[in-house]
């Protein structure tokens, strides 16, 4: 039995402290994005490119992957191997769908003439969403590793803390997207006003 002064497992506390640090990382990216919004001096500009219906779909996919994640955790906790495998895989797959959407979006923008060094929008947009995408990628690898452990019968209820910590990370990545979706995509309608 693990004993800690607060009763909170060390791994879980580590993840929360790490998430606190990540708040500052994404905070800096968002602050830069906002500081530079509307300051590009050549096009293409954000309002010509951002595709709200498309990104709404991938946003919804990421939200649903969060749901799969909590279901995976409770399956692992109650010792349900079938549910564990299924929901872990679904979480990872939905994450992959989101990433595929991002690859498609980036390609589309590049095709429209928005190279990385084109203007201020391109730099801030690609780095901010790219950082988030990198976090999703790490999360997918992590989830697939857990899924592989589950497939080999090595993810019983006694290891639920591993899934819980991965879940915290995954939900945080989702939360960051909730903010980015609003700030980058939906509020682009307000920047011209």
């Amino acid at each position: 039995m693990e004993r800690t002064s607060t009763g909170v497992p060390n791994e879980k506390m580590l993840m929360w402290a790490f998430i606190g640090s990540e708040c500052m990382l994404f905070g800096s990216l968002i602050a830069t994005y906002l500081a530079y919004r509307g300051r590009s001096i050549v096009g293409p500009y954000e309002e010509e490119l951002l595709n709200i219906p498309f990104i709404t779909v991938t946003t919804f996919v990421l939200l649903m992957s969060s749901l799969m994640m909590v279901l995976a955790l409770s399956a692992v906790q109650r010792g349900d191997p079938r549910g564990s495998k299924l929901f872990l895989l679904l979480t990872a797959l939905l994450g992959l769908v989101f990433l595929a959407g991002q690859v498609f979006e980036f390609n589309h923008f590049a095709h429209e003439g928005l190279g990385l060094g084109r203007n201020l929008f391109s730099g801030t947009f690609f780095l901010t969403t790219g950082f988030h995408g990198a976090h999703v990628t790490v999360g997918v690898i992590w989830l697939l590793t857990l899924w592989a452990m589950a497939m080999r019968g090595r993810l019983g209820p006694e290891k639920s803390l591993k899934v819980e910590v991965a879940g915290l990370y995954w939900h945080f990545v989702d939360v960051v997207w909730i903010v980015l979706f609003t700030v980058i995509y939906l509020m682009s309608g307000a920047s011209g006003a």
């Binding site: 606190g20 640090s21 990540e22 500052m24 990382l25 905070g27 800096s28 990216l29 830069t32 530079y36 300051r39 590009s40 001096i41 990385l116 060094g117 203007n119 201020l120 391109s122 730099g123 801030t124 780095l127």
Partner: peptide, 29 residues
Amino acid sequence: LAFPPFTIGTIFLLFDRMFGTLFFEPSGG
């Protein structure tokens, strides 16, 4: 809390130097 903003700044700088982004480039805004 203090290192992440610096990390972001250095990554902007790295991209400016290696990939031609315009974060700190007055000629590009």
